[in-house]
Design a protein around this nucleic acid. Structure first.
Lengths: 216, 216
DNA sequence: GTTTACAGGAATGTTGACACTTTTCCGGGG
DNA sequence: CCCCGGAAAAGTGTCAACATTCCTGTAAAC
């Protein structure tokens, strides 16, 4: 029984657990157990579960409790179609709002060190750099509503990144696309950067489609 | 005290009330009153308020209750930036998923009768046709996740449509853009339709920017 | 051996009461 | 007249107990 936490903290804790698959898809969330673990009353846990339900991370079946949402393939494609346009928009806005020099160091990182990382198969570290750039772009877009939407939709498929990136040649393809995108951003070509980002996510979706049997 | 309703029904009822501004922005939602009105316990109302909070329709201030979210101008622009790409995507998907003939009758309606409607100032009826087409496109896109997102983001600015449409010449401009979009859809040119829809929403945003003093 | 009925247990849904915070109202003082 | 306590009222946050539903295991019947 840990220290008592607020409802928001419980929500956040469960979000990362689900994103990291520390709770498996389809697993049941026991209200009583969670209440005891977090040191709060069941009502608080229920609030958090309600929020998770609204975010589409769990499904609540009447009288049977909350289970972690299990996403089927079609849903994943739907999400990737949306990510295509949302992240494209974020890229364009970030390019427009930021002086081009700001992306120089990111470009250098993706051209040099990260290439070696991928070659050596250090994918976990590569993922961390990828997510860092993604956050930087999201913030630079300066659109809180967009940031919120991207978060809620991204966390649904976060678990898939690790599986996509190990597909044959996929990591290197993604890196090259990021280099091209960052080059456009360094030149201040917002529209071009948006197009590149969109194409990048579309190719990721197509790779998913091709290898779907190996992923789900 | 009406008939007892489920939590989902209360949520829906409050959603439409807020969308129609039957509850003014900034107004406080009294839990006890709502519970009595809907004939349910306060806990149910609290669940519904929690859902509204997650959707960004109300803001909950500790120990002071839930107030209807009051959207400032910057937020409106942020939302329109997102609508631009989301509705553009929906238009492209709808065009790809549907035989071109399906849009013929909509095109005819926007070319003929609706032009007269606008000329006669029957804006309310025009809005209804507009929203009907919008729903049809959303469904034809066959992407439930996208539909859900468009709904949640659209309902935040729904109240503004009536104010934008009365701007000088705005209704007619919007109609012409819809005609152009539907012509592209009738020819099966999905990419072109997406671009037209995006430009249409951008021009609406610019009109908002220009006349912001008259609207908020 | 399989199936069905039933009882016990476990988990969720619901309610009402209680504690705490904020607001309001009233009276006194400056 | 205005302003400042302070107590009462109203409203929200929290909790624990109760009701209901669902799952499990056992035993009997076919």
């Amino acid at each position: 029984m840990r220290k008592a936490k607020s409802a928001a903290e419980i929500l956040q804790a469960l979000r990362v657990r689900i994103a990291q698959q520390r709770i498996a898809p389809g697993a049941k969330l026991n209200e009583t157990d969670l209440a005891e673990e977090f040191g709060v009353s069941r009502a608080r846990v229920r609030d958090a579960l309600g929020a998770l339900e609204q975010r589409g991370l769990v499904e609540r079946i009447p009288n049977r409790g909350a289970v972690v949402m299990r996403l089927d393939l079609s849903q994943v494609f739907h999400i990737y179609e949306i990510r295509e346009v949302l992240e494209g928009l974020a890229t364009r806005l970030a390019t427009q709002n930021t002086p081009p020099e700001a992306w120089k160091e990111d470009l250098a990182r993706f051209q040099g060190p990260l290439k070696d990382l991928i070659a050596r198969g250090e994918l976990q570290e590569y993922i961390e750099h990828y997510e860092r750039l993604r956050r930087k772009i999201t913030e630079a877009a300066k659109n809180p509503v967009l940031a919120e939407m991207m978060d809620t939709i991204f966390e649904k498929t976060q678990v898939l990144i690790r599986r996509i990136i190990i597909l044959p040649g996929r990591a290197e393809v993604g890196r090259k696309q990021h280099v091209a995108m960052l080059q456009a951003m360094c030149k201040g070509e917002a529209q071009e950067a948006e197009n590149i980002r969109r194409n990048g996510l579309r190719s990721a979706r197509l790779a998913l489609e091709k290898y779907q049997g190996f992923i789900l």
